[in-house]
Design a protein around this nucleic acid. Structure first.
Lengths: 129, 129
DNA sequence: ATGAACCTTCCAGTACAGTGGAAGGTCAAG
DNA sequence: CTTGACCTTCCACTGTACTGGAAGGTTCAT
């Protein structure tokens, strides 16, 4: 399977696949006589794993860690569990922060909706912020 | 007021203030005979505005827009209202996305907590993802 | 007069996940 | 034989908000 076909099969681009290889997320592909990369069907699963990891909010670096542990023959289960737990805590903090921000902006927006823009004075940048 | 004093007064660094000037967020400061930047007290308010804008989740580019409109003599109120409304919609989408992600990860994490890591097979990278 | 603390400019790098483009090689169809 | 689609490498750039450091000038106290 050539790189373009893998890209189509996985819903990504050839650029991205080469970037993954360079980043150590995909093993260096075998080459055809022409020098073209030649992928086996496994590659589809591997790219799918990367995408599922990203969908779970892991960074490419974290996904690479898991992949490298797996390559050394050890099941990365406990590591994955830790990673997911950590990500969960990060997410909770992030969500709390965004909710607080939403509250702030919502209030500012409500104030800004009051139709009295004439009272904007020249010595402040904007009374809504 | 020299740049270091402004930095201290606004809780930031001289690097950041020069960066703001270069980015068009602060007007080019007057210079003393020595070439040192010489700020008036207004600058404190202006930097404060930038920080409040950031706290409201606006990007520096958006804050710069408001500042530039203000400089042309027009009160940026309606623009700010639009910006805040837009930011509110973005935030809602972002929060919804993160909540969904939290759900997904929470489930994966709960599965990964089950103590049966022996069943990890060699042909999949990790059954939890 | 000399050292510390402050300032100046300019260049380069950080993290993240790619994206764009140039210059050139390969392959199948017409 | 040429055209077009595909592939290769390499280098540089995107956006965001800074940060680090080098090389040099200024100010003030001792």
């Amino acid at each position: 399977m050539r790189i373009g076909q893998l890209a189509e099969a996985t819903g990504t681009t050839t650029k991205t696949l080469r970037f993954y290889e360079e980043s150590g997320l995909l093993p260096p592909a075998d080459r055809m006589a022409s020098g073209y990369r030649d992928y086996t069907d496994d590659a589809v699963g591997r790219v799918g794993f990367i995408h599922r990891g990203q969908a779970a909010g892991l960074t490419l670096a974290q996904i690479g860690q898991i992949l490298r542990i797996r390559e050394h023959g050890q099941p990365p289960c406990s590591h994955v569990r830790d990673l997911l737990g950590e990500r969960l805590r990060e997410l909770d903090a992030q969500i709390a922060e965004l909710l607080a921000l939403r509250e702030t902006i919502s209030q500012l927006h409500a104030q800004a909706a009051e139709p009295e823009p004439d009272t904007c004075s020249a010595d402040e940048v904007c009374r809504y912020i």
